Simulated scan of single mutants.
Amino acid sequence: MAKQWTGAMALAASAVAAVAMAHNGAKGVVLERMNGMTAMRDTVAELAPMMQGAVPYDAFIVSEGAAVIASHAGETMLSLFPEGSLEGVTYAKPEIWSNWQDFAALAEEMRVYADALSEAAPNGLEPASALPADMAGMDHTGMAMPPVEETNPGFSVAELMGYAEKTADSPVSSGQADPASLAPTLSSLAADDLFTRISGTCSSCHAQFRAGKN
């Protein structure tokens, strides 16, 4: 347990150092969006050990962390990508603007999942804890629920956020979530389920719209 936590802390520290170097020379809206992406990545790095069972689960930290992610997603994220803002130090790809609808869908999907995680944090990591007592023993196979993107619990933060080489088991998000229809059911899910969806959306967005792997 201690070794896992030490490894997670070392990875987070190295990620922060790498980001600090990458941000040298960035300014204006490019710097703002880099800072926003860094805040989300740092939050994922903090929550990942909890979701993997490496450290004790803390519902308050999960809820607050999810709120941070939500605050940088959706319309807030889109406002930091004015058309053509590719000058200077940036990892943004031109495909962001040529496929704006897909990019916007992923940004909103991230906000929906993060808002749901903030609300569902008390559900914990066990799916049954998110259900009323009289429903815990029922057969839910016929119930309509949003599909779950499966991910390897041993993924590094870099892989979860889409900075590393993708594998066949990497989480993938379509970016076609309908926030209006998903929101009512998402808050009943387990926290690690929602975290998987968040990391899948991050990975998908970076794979499509971010240049480089570092």
Rank of each mutant, 00 (worst) to 15 (best):
I198D: 12
A133Y: 04
Y113T: 02
N99Q: 06
G74C: 02
A67L: 08
M161P: 08
A207F: 10
A191T: 06
W5L: 03
I61A: 10
F81C: 10
L78Y: 07
P179C: 04
R111T: 07
T6D: 03
S118Y: 00
P184L: 05
E109C: 04
G53R: 02
S14D: 12
G25N: 10
M34R: 13
Y57V: 01
A207Y: 14
D193N: 09
T151S: 15
M51P: 00
A92G: 11
L194P: 00
G36M: 03
A180Y: 01
A104N: 07
M161L: 14
L131R: 14
L125V: 09
E87Y: 11
A8E: 01
D169A: 14
G200E: 05
A48G: 03
A177C: 11
C202S: 07
L131P: 12
E75S: 06
Q208P: 09
A13S: 10
G53M: 00
A121F: 05
S14E: 13
G88I: 07
S129K: 13
E64V: 13
I96K: 01
S118I: 01
E165I: 15
V62E: 00
E83R: 07
N214E: 09
T38F: 06
T90M: 10
A144D: 06
A136K: 15
A13Y: 05
V89K: 12
A13R: 11
V89Q: 13
A116Q: 05
A104H: 08
L182S: 02
E159G: 04
N99I: 01
K166L: 15
I61C: 04
A116T: 02
L182I: 02
Y163G: 14
F103K: 02
A116I: 00
C202V: 05
K93E: 14
M145A: 08
A17Q: 12
S118Q: 03
V112P: 00
E150H: 15
V29N: 09
M135P: 13
S79P: 10
E149H: 15
M110C: 08
K166E: 15
A144F: 02
P94N: 01
A114G: 03
R33G: 05
M51C: 09
D139C: 08
L106S: 10
G84I: 04
D192I: 09
Q4L: 04
T90K: 14
A67E: 05
F195R: 03
I61K: 05
D169F: 15
E150P: 15
V19S: 09
A164K: 13
F155V: 06
P127G: 07
A116W: 01
A66E: 06
A164C: 12
A107F: 01
S71V: 14
W97L: 00
N99M: 02
L189R: 08
L11D: 13
E46L: 14
V55T: 02
E119C: 01
A10S: 13
D178P: 02
A70F: 03
P94L: 00
Q101P: 03
A18E: 11
N214I: 11
V68P: 01
I96D: 00
P122S: 08
F155N: 14
V148P: 01
N99D: 09
M135V: 05
